[in-house]
């Protein structure tokens, strides 16, 4: 599936909850519990997205010209957010990742996590994902 299709799927999935914040967060927590976990050997400081409150480790590898992400966090809601991003980006090519727009975050009602000052918000995670894509794209073409 392409990035836009997965995004639409996520929007539809979260729309089911309507105004039910509890349902939405329970789903997010559930997604966090099923996050493709980073291999222990990769859970190192250089893969840590530095933030204020919760820690996020993110790892990327290239398989068959597609980027595969794994991650972990010490906070479960943060894990849920990373899980959403991984669902969107894992298995895509570096170029597709670099070009993706991410307005779906707003549409699934997680906008409050988008604030750039929010500790370890989505912004720094997305930035890191795109950085990995750029790096992998360069290594692929060199």
């Amino acid at each position: 599936m392409r990035i836009a299709e997965i995004e639409n799927e996520l929007i539809e999935e979260f729309e089911l909850f309507g105004d039910d914040w509890e349902g939405k967060y329970e789903h997010l927590i559930d997604l966090g519990k099923h996050l493709p976990l980073i291999d222990k050997q990769h859970k190192t400081d250089d893969r840590l997205i530095k933030g204020c409150q919760s820690r996020v480790w993110l790892h990327s590898e290239l398989y068959d010209e597609k980027v595969v992400f794994t991650a972990d966090s010490d906070a479960i809601i943060t894990k849920g957010i990373v899980a959403i991003l991984i669902r969107v980006f894992s298995g895509q090519t570096p170029e597709e990742i670099m070009q993706a727009d991410l307005i779906f975050i707003d549409d699934i009602g997680l906008k409050e996590h988008l604030s750039p000052t929010r500790a370890n918000g989505l912004v720094s995670m997305i930035k890191q994902i795109k950085m990995y894509a750029i790096a992998l794209n360069l290594s692929q073409n060199s």
């Binding site: 914040w21 509890e22 967060y25 204020c52 409150q53 919760s54 010490d74 906070a75 479960i76 809601i77 943060t78 500790a119 370890n120």
Partner: peptide
């Protein structure tokens, strides 16, 4: 077994403003 940031987030959803972090 729960992270302060997670608790703060769920409290916020219930209208409760606390501070979390260092």
């Amino acid at each position: 077994e729960v992270h302060p940031l997670d608790v703060g987030t769920i409290l916020d959803k219930q209208g409760i403003a606390v501070r979390t972090g260092h």
